[in-house]
Every structure is written in C-alpha cells, then in structure tokens.
Nucleic acid binder design. Sequence first.
DNA 1: TATGAATGAGAATTCATTCAT
DNA 2: CATGAATGAATTCTCATTCAT
Lengths: 205, 205, 205, 205
Amino acid sequence: MALRDRRREILDAAAPIFGEEGYERASIDAIASRAGVSKPTVYSHFGGKEQLFRESVADSAQQQNEAALGAIAQLDYSAEGWQEALYRLGLGLADCSLSPCSVFLDRMIAAEVGRDPDIFDVVQVRAVRPVQEALAGRLAMLGNAGFLRIADPVKAARQFMVLVNAELPGLTVLGTQRISTEAFEGAVHDGVDTFLRAYAAEPAI
Amino acid sequence: MALRDRRREILDAAAPIFGEEGYERASIDAIASRAGVSKPTVYSHFGGKEQLFRESVADSAQQQNEAALGAIAQLDYSAEGWQEALYRLGLGLADCSLSPCSVFLDRMIAAEVGRDPDIFDVVQVRAVRPVQEALAGRLAMLGNAGFLRIADPVKAARQFMVLVNAELPGLTVLGTQRISTEAFEGAVHDGVDTFLRAYAAEPAI
Amino acid sequence: MALRDRRREILDAAAPIFGEEGYERASIDAIASRAGVSKPTVYSHFGGKEQLFRESVADSAQQQNEAALGAIAQLDYSAEGWQEALYRLGLGLADCSLSPCSVFLDRMIAAEVGRDPDIFDVVQVRAVRPVQEALAGRLAMLGNAGFLRIADPVKAARQFMVLVNAELPGLTVLGTQRISTEAFEGAVHDGVDTFLRAYAAEPAI
Amino acid sequence: MALRDRRREILDAAAPIFGEEGYERASIDAIASRAGVSKPTVYSHFGGKEQLFRESVADSAQQQNEAALGAIAQLDYSAEGWQEALYRLGLGLADCSLSPCSVFLDRMIAAEVGRDPDIFDVVQVRAVRPVQEALAGRLAMLGNAGFLRIADPVKAARQFMVLVNAELPGLTVLGTQRISTEAFEGAVHDGVDTFLRAYAAEPAI
DNA sequence: TATGAATGAGAATTCATTCAT
DNA sequence: CATGAATGAATTCTCATTCAT
C-alpha cells in the first residue's frame, strides 16, 4: 500500500514539475521534495530520472486519454441533436487539449522527442490513437446514420481535432495563458463549422 | 566582414544544436565547436546563452517566413489552374513545415514558451502572422474571383494550414523521421480536399 | 557527527586559503581539496563562496576573541606585579595579533570591506569590541587601584592596542614574515612604555 | 607627450578601480574603458596587469608621500605655538590617512602582500618611511628645543602615527564611511593628548 | 525500505592576454 | 602606435546518482 501510494505521490509531484520546467530543468530534488520523500526513495521506485519521466508521460497520457474518451462517449447521434452534440464534442475535446495534463504532454513530446523518440509512441498509443479511433467510430456512426459523408473516418477524426484546435495555440500562447469563454467557444465553433461544411451529407450550412 | 561572418557561422551552428538537443542540453561548447570558434567568441557576439537562443529563434523565424512567403507568392488564381495551384500551395507550405528550420521552431516554442514567453511572440510576429496574412490575401482573391466562399480569410488561412499539416506530425514523428513522397502528398492532398469541400463556392467535389 | 566534523574541516581549510590568497583568488576547489572533501560538499554545507567566507571570518573572529580574552584574563593587578603584568599582557595581545587567525582577519577586512561591509561589523562585534571592553575593564581596575590615571578606559584600551602593535606590521610585513623574539619583545615593550608614561598616576618612569 | 599622457590617464583610471574592486576583481577592460583607451594600449604601456598594479601602487604611494610631507612641513616648533601645531599636524596626517589614495594603499597592501610582497616594500620605501623620518626629524627638533623628551625619534614618530589614527578605522569603517568633523577632530585630539603626556618634557598636562 | 551525506561530471561565464590590421 | 576580434584557462555552481546507516 505504502509503496503504491509513494509511486502515486511521486508521479503527482513529477508531472507539474516536468511540465513547467521541462525535462532538464526539472530536478529530482524538487520532485522528491514536492512529493515529501527523499531523493533515494525516488530512485528506488523509478530507477532514474529518465524512467521517472517516461512513467510520468505515460501516466499523463492515460489521464488525457480518459478525459478525452469521456467527452467522446457523450456524443449523441440522434437525428435531432447531432449537430449540437458535435459542437459540444468539439468544446469538450478542445477543453481537454487545454488541460494542464495535455499542455504538459505537448510540451514534453515536442521538447524530448529528439532525445527519446519512444515517448512519442507512448503518447500516440496511449492517448492520441485511442481518442482518434473512438472519435472516428462516432463519426462513422454519423456517417452510417446519413448525417455525414465520410470516406475515411480516422482521417476525418484527425481533421476534426486539428480544426477544433486550430485557433487555440495562438489564443492561449500554447496553453500558457487563460482565455475568455466566448473566445474559446467561438474558436471551437468555427472549427466545427468548417468540419460540417466539408463533411455534411447535404449542403446544410 | 569577419564580424558578420562569425555571427552567421554561430547562428548556423546554433540552430541545429538547439533544435536537436533543446535549450538546456545544448551547450555553448558544442555550438562554439560546431561553428569553429571559441566559447568566448560566442559570448562576445551574443552576450550569453539566452540571447543566442533568442537570436537563433528569430533568425529561424525569418528563414521560415521567407520560405513560406515564397511558396505563397507562386499561387496562381486564374480560372483554369486555381485548384491545382491550391494543392501545390498546400504541398509547398507543408514542405516548409517539415524543413529543419520549422521543426526547430515548433519544438523550441513548445518546449521553451514557459521559460521565455517572448519567443512565442517573436515567432508569431516574424513568421506565423505574415504567412497567415499573405495566405489570407491569396484566399481572399480566390474568393473575389468567385471560386471560394470565404467569410473570414485569416481564419480560413489558419484552417488551411492546420488541415494541410494535420497528418504530418504523426507520420513524421514531429518532423524527426523521413516520409515517402507518396505518403506526404497524400496527406497534404486530403487536407486541401477537405478545405475545398468546406469553402468551395459550388459543391465542386 | 560527520556533519559537524565536515563543517569544521572545511572551515579549518578555508581560513588559511582565504588568508593567503584573498577572497577572489581563493578557489572553492582548493578549499575542498585541502579539507579532503569534494566541491559539492562545500556547497551543501555553506551554500556558496560568499557564505563560506563570512562563516570563515566569523569563525576566525571567534577564535581571535577567545585567544585575546584569555590573555587579558591573566592580567594581575596586584600592587607588586601590575607593571610587569601589563608588559606581559602587551606581549600576549601582540602575540594574538600575529597569530595566523588574526593576520587573516586583518587582511580580509581590509581587502573585502568594500565588497562586503558586513564583515567589518561582524569582526568588530565578535572580536574587536569584546576584547577592547575586557581590556578597558582591566585598565579601569588599575585606575581604581590608583596605579593609572584613566579618564576613558575604552579609549585607553584602543591606544594600548595600537601602541603595542605599532612596530609589528613593519617588522613582520603585515604578519607574513617571522621575527626574532628579541625584536618582538622590544617592540612591544616600547609600546607599553609609552602607554605607561602617558597614563601612570605618578611620573614613574 | 601623448605617451606620457596615456600613461597618466591609465594610471589615473587604474587607481580608483583597483582601490574599489581589489586586484582580482579589477578588470583591464574596465580600466582601459575608464581611461578611454583600448586594452592592447594598456598592455603596450604597462606590459600586464601585475605591472600596471605595481606602478599604480607606487604612484599612489608617491602622492600619499607628498601629501603627508606637506602636512609635516608646516609644523611650527616655536616656543609659543608648538603644542597647537602638533595638534594641527595630527589632523593633517590623519586627514592624509583618510584620503582615497591612502585608503587604496592600505587595502592593496593588505590584500596583495601575500601574492606580491614587493609592494609592501615599495610603499614602505616610497611613502611610509620618508614620512616617518620627516616626522621623526620634526619631533627631534622639538626634543632639541626642550619641549619633548624623545629618546628614539623614529619610534616616537611611529607611535605618533598610530595614536593619531587609533580611533579612525573603527569610526570610518576603514575609510569607507564619512565621519563628522567633530568626531574626527576629537579622535585625533585624544591621540595627540596621549602622545604629549607620554613625551612631554615636564608633566605639562 | 527510507534517508542524510557525499561525489563526479559538466555547465555557463569571465578575464588576462595576444594577433592581424 | 592603437585597435577589434579571438582565445585558453580557470572558476563558481548544479545535478543525477550512490553509499552507509
């Protein structure tokens, strides 16, 4: 039990420090101190900085995954509400992208992919791909239902993601600045709009 | 003469090292050595690591800017060729996004924006915004010509950019892996396709 | 145990190196090496060069204080021996002034007072003032006993100190050169002589 | 001419920088810049930092010497005014001791005597000894005139110097702090008083 | 197992000094 | 002569990592 708790405490301490400072600047000292344990304890649990980092990334990817899947699971594909639901889905996914956890992941893979290409795969496999596939599945359902005309649902899912997030990096300085709700919702709305215009079964909008 | 050359040599040495190692791991020693000068020479020219980094980012942004504007300048908006030209433009811009210079910029701003928020603005002002506006101008011309229906050209330009690049990070592991020409062109094509479907004046495709 | 020992070992190594080389030339490397520890150990115990220097100064002031107070405590102010005792006191205090510890202090405060005015106060409070006051107290006793005529004992104490030490800097090149016992005793004797002539209750000499 | 001027300009720039920063912290860059010349010019005139430092010390010793000799030369040894003149002499010499030039010398010899014992001799020969001897000569005249009873005039001169300066280091933090005229004159007065009591031909005071 | 103490390796930065012009 | 540019050497300081307890 204590062992499991220690691991969690250390991971919970590591993520924000890695996220804010980056891999190099993050010091084991700071992480251990924030977790309330001593440095050798970190080593006995994780083996070293690199492994701690990987586990931290994997852990954040897991959380990110769960949050995004949660948003997708709520998508309604009934005849009346599907468009409205797609806008809400866009908001949910965009919100995930601005979560500290996701901002952390984006920074880490950008910064460390050169040093450790594995983390890219880890995040792809644990977070990006499952979300894309879940989203693709939902879009396919809308296709089957005749609302959308979608040849390649996975590709469409990726395009949905980038359109929904198209404005956000610039507005939030890569997730480091807060943004008004109106600006946020407007930006997401525009992305979903374009997606709908491109994929609507009939020239709806 | 020597002065200008030294500066350039150092900047040319700094960009790939910062790009591959990240700010922290990049050592002035390595940069000086790659530039064929001694460490104090780097200091006398740039004052310190942080300033060198900023100048390196600004310099890369400039290069990125020029390359992208070059691609945009070639856009043809005549009646016959405009669609073909838009596909070519997509390829050109996507190619810019995979250039070492652009990969360097993306990694650096993602990784270092927390430590030094200014670099985000520098890149926005020097590279992102001018390109967006030039692209927006061209899209607006296509709108005026009656080919596209575009309410907000700047927004459309951003969406064009993200659609064209939607698949590339995943395919190239954030620009660190080579990719086949076919895969590259296919990915870009899909992005332009979706853009055209969303913005075409008549349901052309 | 180890902690206390390390501190002491480092302080004992630092004082002569600071004393011989001065603050700037003294290198943490040299101090660590002389103390038989590694550089980071010095940093973990003292935080940095400046703090180590201050602690070293304070430590030397403490030692200097104890040595000088020891010499003063032995002053006899009985009727028969008081003059002889005053000569011996002069020798004792002058001897303190030539101790490595005192030479170190004098050099450091002279050299570094501009950079760090606090060290002057530290030495005054920890070493100079207590000694002056102890000496003043003894001189006042000699005054009360009718041997000396002393209006301001603290001032007299300062004058006693400078008279006793008047010749020594020149003879010992500021404490860096050895000196014969005769020369030393003669120099001190002259200072005490003058003091006695100035303060004797009756024109004794 | 220009050569001579350059030397003077550099020496005039060097003294305050050495005095305020100490030998190690003083940078040739700063000295050259203050003198309005370039670094190699300093080297061509003085050969190196160490030599520049020595020349700077010798130069300051010369100035110190002249100032002190000037004060001594004014000593009146007529029957009526000699005591008053001795007080004025004390003030003059103490004033010299607080001059920037003298404070600089004191700091430099304290700080650098370990590294370069020659400078102690230079200052002794050029400044301390001539002043002591001039003062000794004047005191001897007062002895010959029957005002003072002085066995060893040089020793008496040294004692005069230390008594006159006894309080000043503590009051001025080794010359780094200003002091009120009253405090200054009082401190000097006390020193001369004690000197007079010790050396007066008759128990005058 | 958890820790206080210690360290080896490596980083940025500064500076006296020297050429080529 | 005077200088702008360049450098080799040295210094402070930090950090991941490991023992002895």
